[in-house]
Design a protein around this nucleic acid. Structure first.
Lengths: 276, 276
DNA sequence: TAGTGGTCTAGACCACCTA
DNA sequence: AGGTGGTCTAGACCACTAG
């Protein structure tokens, strides 16, 4: 239970010493350094510390100078290793304060490209983005993963998932109907939760209760006609045009940790993306 | 020595001005004089060379060592400056060959997130992406920019634009109906072009005939009901559900150089985006 | 073989933040 | 004031690509 810095630094030092002491054998190592540059190996080592939870999300990692010294490399090399993880979004540097493990993406930041005209008559819509929608869990049950979920989350067949449906509202106006699938046993901790115990934002809950940090997501926008449950929840006619956003969320290790289908009234929906 | 630092800093700015050779780069000068880092100033200088056309898209820039020497800075500093432009997408480094000015984004790469189910029954759809749609210009005329275009392209009111409509087809099947607005006089060179003289891909034409490199774009996805012209072009019922992608394209200097509204059958449309 | 970018070092000093 | 990351130097050697 000792997550102290001194303890965590030892394996790094060991590996680094091994690499530098016998240059002729340095490519033999399988896991960390397989024909990699030195800063690449260091990046892998640091990544390991993050993924193992040794360095918790939000916490500061040791200073560059300290890391460089304990790994026996020049400062610039260690900075380069850190830069790799920064570009991956795993670390964040703050001038004068330190380098921190990323907290992942929050719920609101994922809504940033997902707006509703109804909430803001003008096209600017920047104000509406800041408003976090209220969420109400409609149903919650454990099921065997349906084929579509098995494929999207790359699960072994027969795996159980926690299936949620919820309605999200802006200014008490229902605007999104969501079906969410969370793989088990990863999210076992969420199964006993009462419907009313869920927060408005899911991802902070996943981090707090299951230790899973959502770090990346892929959205797929399509169009469909409202099924009965969608229509009822959004106060639409059955068969009304709907926008559907299918999202796959990834954790820091790149594992697929959530599939979500969000439905909204097609005519009051827009989605923005940057290319390049 | 502190004195040494001041001494070494002065000649750099002198040489940089000499390199830029055109005092008309006011956006550079303003930023340079302020408390910018040295590599930041160097980056601005390099950017000026690219935006002025002195370094043409696709061509190699001088070697790092040479640039560093002529600017009187250490190699590492020049590398940092180059890295800035690489991260902006203006430069691309190729190990062993050189550093090249970016050619911008091609037409196909902008279609990468814009796919049609009809063309590929299964969800993978990677094959269909490589297929470049055939384009047929339906109409072409010069008009005063409508209010929406004025806003989207940030034009002075009363400005003329070249307005195009075109139909794009995959395997002879019309799948996209596009309205395109190009600001004048920037694209005056395209005005006299015959309808049949247009290529399937617009952006390479913009570069070749008007010297404008499209470098970034922003897509906004919404849904609407087909107007008469859209419906006819796509062989749909009037009022049928349509996906609309409103795209604003930017050139290397960040100017808005195109507004485009692309319409497709909503039921055979999907759009993918990565978050973070 | 010559030229390019890529990696790495061992320092120095600067800018920023917190206490 | 003391710690953090940010900038910069002046070298060295390696890896890749070309003629």
């Amino acid at each position: 239970m000792r997550a102290e810095n001194f303890v965590t630094r030892l394996p790094c030092q060991t590996i680094c010493l091994m690499l530098s002491a016998s240059p002729s054998v340095e490519h033999v190592v399988g896991a960390t350094a397989a024909g990699l540059s030195r800063y690449g190996s260091l990046a892998s080592t640091l990544r390991g510390h993050i993924l193992s939870g040794e360095w918790a999300p939000g916490s500061a990692i040791p200073a560059e100078t300290q890391l460089a010294k304990s790994c026996g490399v020049a400062l610039g090399t260690m900075r380069q290793a850190i830069a790799v993880l920064v570009s991956e979004g795993l670390l964040e540097r703050v001038h004068g304060r330190g380098t921190f493990v990323s907290n992942g993406i929050g719920g609101p930041s994922l809504l940033r490209f997902f707006r509703f005209r109804a909430a803001s008559p003008d096209a600017a819509a920047t104000t509406a983005v800041d408003e976090v929608p209220q969420s109400r869990i409609v149903s919650k049950r454990v099921i065997i993963a349906p084929p579509e979920v098995v494929i999207a989350l790359d699960l072994p067949p027969g795996r159980r998932v926690l299936a949620l449906t919820r309605v999200r509202s802006l200014s008490a106006q229902p605007c999104l109907y969501e079906r969410i699938w969370l793989p088990l046993p990863l999210f076992d901790a969420l199964v006993p939760l009462n419907k009313s115990a869920w927060d408005d934002l899911l991802y902070p809950m996943l981090q707090r209760l299951a230790g899973v940090t959502v770090h990346k997501a892929e959205d797929n926008v399509t169009f469909c006609l409202a099924a009965t449950d969608v229509a009822e929840a959004l106060h639409l006619q059955r068969g009304a045009p709907c926008a559907r956003v299918a999202r796959i969320a990834f954790d820091m290790a790149g594992r697929r940790v959530e599939l979500r289908h969000s439905f909204g009234d097609a005519l009051s929906f827009h989605y923005t993306a940057q290319l390049r």
